[in-house]
Design a protein around this nucleic acid. Structure first.
Lengths: 114, 114
DNA sequence: CATAAAAGTGACTTTTTTATCCCTATGGGG
DNA sequence: CCCCATAGGGATAAAAAAGTCACTTTTATG
């Protein structure tokens, strides 16, 4: 049995798992921002993301727990921390590029159907 | 400027667009189910998805509006309709396989960290 | 004549997710 | 001294999403 057939028999679990990990309004934007080099929370907030600190922290924590990010605490004052992509996080970015490409197709189609 | 760099300058729009289109608890499961041949709402409900008819219809409608699905109404009685994947929907399935593969990696890692 | 099958929706409730506000801690600049 | 930046969390409010229930339509079946 090939991979696809097996996955279907096993009732979509890995996909469900993946979706759970990236569900959250700001999770994909966060991963995207970090991938662009905005690793400090304060940097992310100065960027395009209009998200509250509280909420940002929640989502960062979940991404960390899922192994997508890891945190580096410099133990300085004023505080300085950085969030980096793990290997898993970098693999996610590759998937996000595919999704981005699909989004481009989606946009093109919307324009066509105007 | 290459595609990636341009996308970054344009502030992630296509990705945001894509995420919007698939956001919804049952949208990915629906696309998945249809891809497996369960095209009628009643079939989907008999499957693994414990979703209410009301909610199923809402999400089907949105997927249809976004051009991921198209609906075939047989105009029979009792009613018979089918939802099929559009070309865009089939392209989405390809992305979902990538996401599924990422989910497998995620699962493996969870098991390792037990 | 009651019931089932099938797709669909309006009105409403519950649950989940996000957002807001205020608090902590610490050292430096004015 | 007071305020700033910086990261973080508790309590709570608001918004969004999902779920529930009751109803419709039409034909066939018992």
């Amino acid at each position: 049995m090939n991979t696809k057939a097996r996955a279907i028999e096993e009732k979509i679990c890995p996909l469900e798992f993946a979706v759970n990990a990236i569900s959250g309004k700001w999770k994909i934007p966060i991963v995207w921002q970090i991938n662009q080099g905005h690793k400090r929370p304060s940097e992310m907030l100065k960027g395009i993301m209009k998200v509250d600190r509280r909420v940002l922290n929640q989502q960062l924590k979940e991404l960390e727990q899922d192994g997508v990010l890891y945190k580096v605490n410099y133990n300085e004052l004023p505080p300085k921390v950085e969030y980096h992509l793990t290997s898993l996080g970098e693999q996610l970015v590759e998937v996000l590029w595919k999704l981005n490409a699909w989004g481009e197709t989606l946009l093109k189609q919307k324009e066509t159907n105007k």
